[in-house]
Amino acid sequence: MQQKLKGVPETLLIPLWARATETQSSSPIVKDYKAVEMMKNIDYDFSKFDNTWLSQIGVAVRTELLDNSTKTFIHKYPNAVIINIGCGLDTRFFRLDNDKIKWYDLDLPEPIRIRKQFFAETERYKMIAKSVFDYSWINEINISNEPVLIIAEGILMYFTEDEIKSLFNEIIKAFPGAEVLFEMMTPTVAKMSKHHDTASKLGVKFNWGIKSGKQMESYNSKIKFIEEWNYFDYHRDRWHWMRLPSLIPAFKNRFNDRIVHLKLC
């Protein structure tokens, strides 16, 4: 199946490649056999990502962190509604489904077109083919009083600060009380788009970075920071030459992404 993605939408192929490659490694951090199947059936030159070990380990660690945090939420709220913003070719619903949750995967029309080659909608699993900034997608979320978790993985760094603030303002109005898990990039890393091992190959630019997830509280008084997890703290044996400098707090806090956990009041 040939893909027609360019620019930021094309980046969805990076985590697919990373999860599939990780799954086939000798000691995988995550196992995603559906990603292996999908990569084999998509007509794309994935070899351009060969030897990009930094993105490989980064995606593996963030997948593990988001999986564990999402599982914790589902365990606490078995009937939850989960909204996956900028889902790309993510397979998390099919790996974590408890047969009770309702799950919405949201992305642009072309990524959703590709998803529909591999996944079918059900009563509890829906795909929405819209931009995250076309806020009419909110009207397609069927919710009563269920707890809501919003996931934003590998997407927010491509937008501007004003766009991020607008998005969170709309989410807060639509889903008060929801929790959010998102991947943040530091300002230092965001300025290094041209040197990023995979994004640079696709000609895309990072536009947004923050020093800490705590900074999100300044965006809206209804955002409450809960916690964050720095990728460097996990699977240290896989970080190659970065393992030692990552022990230095200044380096650790400037040069790696994190998963941030928020509560919307």
Rank of each mutant, 00 (worst) to 15 (best):
Q117V: 07
Q117G: 10
F118T: 07
F118I: 10
F118E: 05
F118A: 08
F118N: 02
F118M: 09
A120S: 15
A120V: 12
T122S: 15
T122N: 09
T122Q: 11
E123K: 15
E123T: 14
R124N: 14
M127Q: 14
M127R: 12
M127G: 00
I128L: 12
I128W: 00
A129D: 14
D134Y: 05
S136V: 00
S136Y: 08
W137P: 04
I138F: 02
I138D: 03
I138H: 02
S144G: 07
N145P: 01
N145Y: 10
V148R: 00
I150N: 02
G154K: 03
I155E: 03
L156S: 09
L156W: 01
Y158A: 03
F159L: 10
T160Y: 06
T160K: 10
E163D: 14
I164L: 11
K165F: 05
L167C: 08
L167G: 05
L167M: 10
L167Q: 02
F168W: 03
F168N: 00
I172M: 09
I172G: 03
I172W: 08
K173I: 14
A174H: 06
G177A: 10
G177K: 09
A178W: 04
E179K: 13
E183K: 02
E183V: 13
E183H: 05
M185E: 09
T186R: 08
T186K: 03
T188P: 01
V189F: 10
A190H: 05
K191A: 13
K191Q: 13
S193W: 01
S193L: 09
S193H: 02
K194D: 14
H196Q: 11
D197K: 06
D197E: 13
T198A: 15
A199L: 15
S200M: 09
K201P: 02
K201S: 04
L202I: 06
G203P: 01
K205C: 07
K205L: 11
K205P: 04
F206L: 15
W208I: 06
G209M: 08
I210D: 05
I210M: 10
